[in-house]
Nucleic acid binder design. Sequence first.
DNA 1: CGGAATCCGATCTGATACTG
DNA 2: CAGTATCAGATCGGATTCCG
Lengths: 127, 127
Amino acid sequence: MASPAVPATGHPSVCQAREVLGRIGDKWSLYVISRLGEDTRRFTDLKRDVAGISQRMLTVTLRGLERDGIVSRTVYPVMPPRVEYALTPMGRTLLDTVGTLVLWAEDHVAEIDRARVAYDGASRSAP
Amino acid sequence: MASPAVPATGHPSVCQAREVLGRIGDKWSLYVISRLGEDTRRFTDLKRDVAGISQRMLTVTLRGLERDGIVSRTVYPVMPPRVEYALTPMGRTLLDTVGTLVLWAEDHVAEIDRARVAYDGASRSAP
DNA sequence: CGGAATCCGATCTGATACTG
DNA sequence: CAGTATCAGATCGGATTCCG
Protein backbone atom coordinates (compact mmCIF):
# COMPACT_ATOMS: atom_id res chain seq x y z
CA MET A 1 0.00 0.00 0.00
CA ALA A 2 1.47 3.35 -0.94
CA SER A 3 -0.35 5.82 1.29
CA PRO A 4 -2.41 4.11 3.94
CA ALA A 5 -4.84 6.31 5.78
CA VAL A 6 -3.27 5.22 9.03
CA PRO A 7 0.25 3.96 8.46
CA ALA A 8 1.01 1.00 10.65
CA THR A 9 3.93 1.56 12.95
CA GLY A 10 4.88 -2.05 12.39
CA HIS A 11 4.91 -3.01 16.04
CA PRO A 12 1.66 -2.68 17.93
CA SER A 13 1.76 -1.46 21.49
CA VAL A 14 5.24 0.05 21.57
CA CYS A 15 4.79 3.75 20.95
CA GLN A 16 7.08 6.41 22.29
CA ALA A 17 6.55 9.97 23.44
CA ARG A 18 8.31 10.96 20.24
CA GLU A 19 5.62 9.34 18.13
CA VAL A 20 2.94 11.08 20.15
CA LEU A 21 4.67 14.43 19.68
CA GLY A 22 4.94 13.70 16.00
CA ARG A 23 1.19 13.30 15.85
CA ILE A 24 0.05 16.22 17.94
CA GLY A 25 2.87 18.48 16.82
CA ASP A 26 1.92 18.07 13.19
CA LYS A 27 0.77 21.43 11.89
CA TRP A 28 -2.47 20.03 10.54
CA SER A 29 -3.24 18.16 13.73
CA LEU A 30 -2.68 21.33 15.72
CA TYR A 31 -5.06 23.24 13.50
CA VAL A 32 -7.70 20.52 13.47
CA ILE A 33 -7.64 20.16 17.25
CA SER A 34 -7.88 23.90 17.77
CA ARG A 35 -10.72 24.21 15.28
CA LEU A 36 -12.66 21.35 16.78
CA GLY A 37 -12.60 23.01 20.15
CA GLU A 38 -15.53 22.00 22.29
CA ASP A 39 -17.83 21.53 19.32
CA THR A 40 -18.79 18.77 16.96
CA ARG A 41 -17.86 19.49 13.39
CA ARG A 42 -18.45 17.88 10.04
CA PHE A 43 -15.76 17.05 7.53
CA THR A 44 -16.63 19.92 5.23
CA ASP A 45 -16.76 22.38 8.11
CA LEU A 46 -13.24 21.46 9.08
CA LYS A 47 -12.06 21.62 5.51
CA ARG A 48 -13.35 25.16 5.31
CA ASP A 49 -12.02 26.23 8.71
CA VAL A 50 -8.52 24.86 8.36
CA ALA A 51 -7.19 27.19 5.72
CA GLY A 52 -5.19 25.51 3.00
CA ILE A 53 -5.67 21.88 3.99
CA SER A 54 -6.32 19.43 1.18
CA GLN A 55 -9.02 16.81 1.38
CA ARG A 56 -6.40 14.12 1.56
CA MET A 57 -4.49 15.69 4.43
CA LEU A 58 -7.67 16.34 6.37
CA THR A 59 -8.64 12.69 5.97
CA VAL A 60 -5.21 11.43 6.91
CA THR A 61 -4.96 13.80 9.88
CA LEU A 62 -8.40 12.91 11.22
CA ARG A 63 -7.71 9.18 10.87
CA GLY A 64 -4.48 9.55 12.76
CA LEU A 65 -6.09 11.54 15.55
CA GLU A 66 -8.92 9.05 15.70
CA ARG A 67 -6.55 6.13 15.92
CA ASP A 68 -4.72 7.79 18.78
CA GLY A 69 -7.95 8.35 20.67
CA ILE A 70 -7.82 12.13 20.42
CA VAL A 71 -10.76 12.58 18.06
CA SER A 72 -13.99 10.63 17.82
CA ARG A 73 -15.78 9.94 14.57
CA THR A 74 -19.52 9.39 14.34
CA VAL A 75 -21.08 8.18 11.11
CA TYR A 76 -24.80 8.62 10.46
CA PRO A 77 -25.92 6.07 7.87
CA VAL A 78 -27.87 8.45 5.68
CA MET A 79 -27.58 9.72 2.15
CA PRO A 80 -25.72 11.91 1.61
CA PRO A 81 -23.33 10.76 4.32
CA ARG A 82 -23.11 12.71 7.55
CA VAL A 83 -19.98 12.29 9.65
CA GLU A 84 -19.27 14.24 12.80
CA TYR A 85 -15.95 14.75 14.48
CA ALA A 86 -15.32 15.80 18.05
CA LEU A 87 -12.54 15.73 20.61
CA THR A 88 -12.55 12.79 22.98
CA PRO A 89 -12.16 13.46 26.71
CA MET A 90 -8.42 12.89 26.26
CA GLY A 91 -8.37 15.21 23.28
CA ARG A 92 -10.10 17.91 25.28
CA THR A 93 -7.22 17.92 27.76
CA LEU A 94 -5.03 19.08 24.87
CA LEU A 95 -7.22 21.93 23.77
CA ASP A 96 -5.85 24.72 25.95
CA THR A 97 -2.23 23.97 25.19
CA VAL A 98 -2.78 23.50 21.48
CA GLY A 99 -4.88 26.63 21.31
CA THR A 100 -2.12 28.59 22.98
CA LEU A 101 0.43 27.24 20.53
CA VAL A 102 -1.67 28.12 17.49
CA LEU A 103 -2.28 31.61 18.85
CA TRP A 104 1.42 32.01 19.52
CA ALA A 105 2.18 31.12 15.92
CA GLU A 106 -0.34 33.62 14.62
CA ASP A 107 0.93 36.31 16.95
CA HIS A 108 4.58 35.86 16.02
CA VAL A 109 4.44 35.56 12.25
CA ALA A 110 5.71 39.10 11.75
CA GLU A 111 8.51 38.80 14.30
CA ILE A 112 9.67 35.51 12.87
CA ASP A 113 9.50 36.96 9.43
CA ARG A 114 11.86 39.74 10.48
CA ALA A 115 14.18 37.20 12.09
CA ARG A 116 14.33 35.20 8.86
CA VAL A 117 15.08 38.23 6.74
CA ALA A 118 17.84 39.24 9.16
CA TYR A 119 19.30 35.73 9.23
CA ASP A 120 19.20 35.30 5.46
CA GLY A 121 20.64 38.74 4.90
CA ALA A 122 23.50 38.13 7.33
CA SER A 123 24.43 34.79 5.82
CA ARG A 124 24.43 36.25 2.33
CA SER A 125 26.77 39.09 3.21
CA ALA A 126 28.98 37.18 5.65
CA PRO A 127 31.04 35.10 3.20
CA MET B 1 22.34 21.92 -3.14
CA ALA B 2 20.80 18.75 -1.92
CA SER B 3 20.19 19.33 1.79
CA PRO B 4 20.75 22.91 2.81
CA ALA B 5 21.00 23.47 6.54
CA VAL B 6 18.28 26.07 6.28
CA PRO B 7 16.17 25.57 3.17
CA ALA B 8 15.18 28.87 1.67
CA THR B 9 11.45 29.35 1.44
CA GLY B 10 12.02 31.01 -1.91
CA HIS B 11 10.20 34.22 -1.06
CA PRO B 12 11.60 36.28 1.78
CA SER B 13 9.21 38.02 4.09
CA VAL B 14 6.01 36.14 3.34
CA CYS B 15 5.67 33.49 6.00
CA GLN B 16 2.39 32.19 7.29
CA ALA B 17 1.20 30.94 10.66
CA ARG B 18 1.22 27.49 9.11
CA GLU B 19 4.95 27.69 8.45
CA VAL B 20 5.54 28.81 12.00
CA LEU B 21 3.48 25.91 13.32
CA GLY B 22 5.42 23.58 11.09
CA ARG B 23 8.61 24.74 12.74
CA ILE B 24 7.60 24.79 16.38
CA GLY B 25 5.30 21.78 16.06
CA ASP B 26 8.10 19.64 14.72
CA LYS B 27 8.79 16.91 17.26
CA TRP B 28 12.49 17.64 17.38
CA SER B 29 11.92 21.37 17.77
CA LEU B 30 9.56 20.70 20.64
CA TYR B 31 12.12 18.52 22.36
CA VAL B 32 14.99 20.92 21.79
CA ILE B 33 13.04 23.91 23.08
CA SER B 34 11.91 22.03 26.16
CA ARG B 35 15.43 20.77 26.86
CA LEU B 36 16.95 24.19 26.42
CA GLY B 37 14.67 25.61 29.04
CA GLU B 38 16.16 28.62 30.76
CA ASP B 39 19.69 27.34 30.40
CA THR B 40 22.48 27.57 27.91
CA ARG B 41 23.43 24.24 26.42
CA ARG B 42 26.12 22.94 24.14
CA PHE B 43 25.55 20.87 21.05
CA THR B 44 26.64 17.62 22.65
CA ASP B 45 24.53 18.28 25.73
CA LEU B 46 21.46 18.61 23.58
CA LYS B 47 22.37 15.56 21.57
CA ARG B 48 22.52 13.56 24.78
CA ASP B 49 19.34 15.04 26.26
CA VAL B 50 17.12 14.69 23.23
CA ALA B 51 16.82 10.93 23.10
CA GLY B 52 17.10 9.43 19.65
CA ILE B 53 17.96 12.55 17.66
CA SER B 54 20.66 12.17 15.05
CA GLN B 55 23.46 14.65 14.72
CA ARG B 56 22.10 15.78 11.41
CA MET B 57 18.59 16.41 12.70
CA LEU B 58 19.89 18.29 15.69
CA THR B 59 21.91 20.52 13.39
CA VAL B 60 19.01 21.09 11.02
CA THR B 61 16.58 21.72 13.87
CA LEU B 62 18.87 24.19 15.62
CA ARG B 63 19.54 26.08 12.40
CA GLY B 64 15.85 26.38 11.73
CA LEU B 65 15.08 27.60 15.22
CA GLU B 66 17.97 30.04 14.99
CA ARG B 67 16.77 31.39 11.68
CA ASP B 68 13.32 31.94 13.13
CA GLY B 69 14.74 33.86 16.07
CA ILE B 70 13.72 31.28 18.66
CA VAL B 71 17.20 30.07 19.54
CA SER B 72 20.46 31.99 19.75
CA ARG B 73 23.81 30.50 18.84
CA THR B 74 27.07 31.69 20.33
CA VAL B 75 30.36 30.49 18.92
CA TYR B 76 33.56 30.73 20.94
CA PRO B 77 36.54 30.70 18.59
CA VAL B 78 38.59 28.16 20.49
CA MET B 79 39.90 24.70 19.85
CA PRO B 80 38.11 22.43 20.21
CA PRO B 81 35.06 24.47 19.19
CA ARG B 82 32.61 25.59 21.82
CA VAL B 83 29.12 26.56 20.73
CA GLU B 84 26.33 27.48 23.10
CA TYR B 85 22.65 27.50 22.40
CA ALA B 86 19.96 29.28 24.35
CA LEU B 87 16.40 30.45 23.88
CA THR B 88 15.96 34.03 22.75
CA PRO B 89 13.47 36.25 24.60
CA MET B 90 10.88 35.26 22.00
CA GLY B 91 11.78 31.61 22.41
CA ARG B 92 11.35 31.85 26.14
CA THR B 93 7.73 32.89 25.67
CA LEU B 94 7.19 29.47 24.14
CA LEU B 95 8.74 27.47 26.90
CA ASP B 96 5.71 26.97 29.13
CA THR B 97 3.42 25.87 26.33
CA VAL B 98 5.97 23.60 24.72
CA GLY B 99 6.89 22.10 28.06
CA THR B 100 3.24 21.35 28.72
CA LEU B 101 2.89 19.68 25.34
CA VAL B 102 5.95 17.50 25.82
CA LEU B 103 4.76 16.49 29.27
CA TRP B 104 1.33 15.70 27.87
CA ALA B 105 2.90 13.43 25.29
CA GLU B 106 4.93 11.61 27.90
CA ASP B 107 1.95 11.29 30.20
CA HIS B 108 -0.35 9.87 27.53
CA VAL B 109 1.86 7.35 25.77
CA ALA B 110 0.16 4.43 27.47
CA GLU B 111 -3.37 5.70 26.85
CA ILE B 112 -2.63 6.40 23.20
CA ASP B 113 -1.05 3.02 22.90
CA ARG B 114 -4.24 1.40 24.14
CA ALA B 115 -6.28 3.49 21.72
CA ARG B 116 -4.12 2.36 18.81
CA VAL B 117 -4.40 -1.29 19.72
CA ALA B 118 -8.17 -0.93 20.02
CA TYR B 119 -8.41 0.92 16.70
CA ASP B 120 -6.20 -1.51 14.83
CA GLY B 121 -7.99 -4.50 16.34
CA ALA B 122 -11.39 -3.14 15.37
CA SER B 123 -10.38 -2.41 11.79
CA ARG B 124 -8.86 -5.86 11.39
CA SER B 125 -12.00 -7.66 12.54
CA ALA B 126 -14.51 -5.34 10.87
CA PRO B 127 -14.12 -6.39 7.20
C1' DC C 1 -21.10 14.48 1.38
C1' DG C 2 -17.22 12.11 2.78
C1' DG C 3 -14.36 9.67 1.65
C1' DA C 4 -10.66 5.67 -0.72
C1' DA C 5 -7.10 4.46 -4.14
C1' DT C 6 -3.41 5.55 -7.00
C1' DC C 7 0.28 8.09 -9.20
C1' DC C 8 4.33 10.67 -8.62
C1' DG C 9 7.41 14.59 -7.71
C1' DA C 10 9.16 16.92 -3.57
C1' DT C 11 10.89 16.59 0.81
C1' DC C 12 12.92 14.40 4.75
C1' DT C 13 16.16 11.67 7.20
C1' DG C 14 19.73 8.35 8.69
C1' DA C 15 24.23 6.62 7.63
C1' DT C 16 28.61 7.62 6.40
C1' DA C 17 32.74 10.11 5.54
C1' DC C 18 35.42 14.25 6.13
C1' DT C 19 37.06 18.72 8.59
C1' DG C 20 38.84 23.00 11.31
C1' DC D 1 33.70 19.41 19.62
C1' DA D 2 30.69 20.83 16.32
C1' DG D 3 29.76 20.62 12.55
C1' DT D 4 29.41 20.08 6.60
C1' DA D 5 28.68 17.23 2.38
C1' DT D 6 26.65 13.61 0.00
C1' DC D 7 23.71 9.88 -1.18
C1' DA D 8 20.02 6.49 -1.12
C1' DG D 9 15.80 4.92 0.96
C1' DA D 10 11.62 6.38 3.18
C1' DT D 11 7.95 9.41 3.69
C1' DC D 12 4.97 13.29 2.54
C1' DG D 13 1.45 15.46 0.14
C1' DG D 14 -1.08 17.40 -3.92
C1' DA D 15 -3.77 16.14 -7.97
C1' DT D 16 -6.77 13.14 -9.92
C1' DT D 17 -10.24 9.64 -10.33
C1' DC D 18 -13.85 6.89 -8.63
C1' DC D 19 -17.46 5.42 -5.24
C1' DG D 20 -21.79 4.59 -1.96
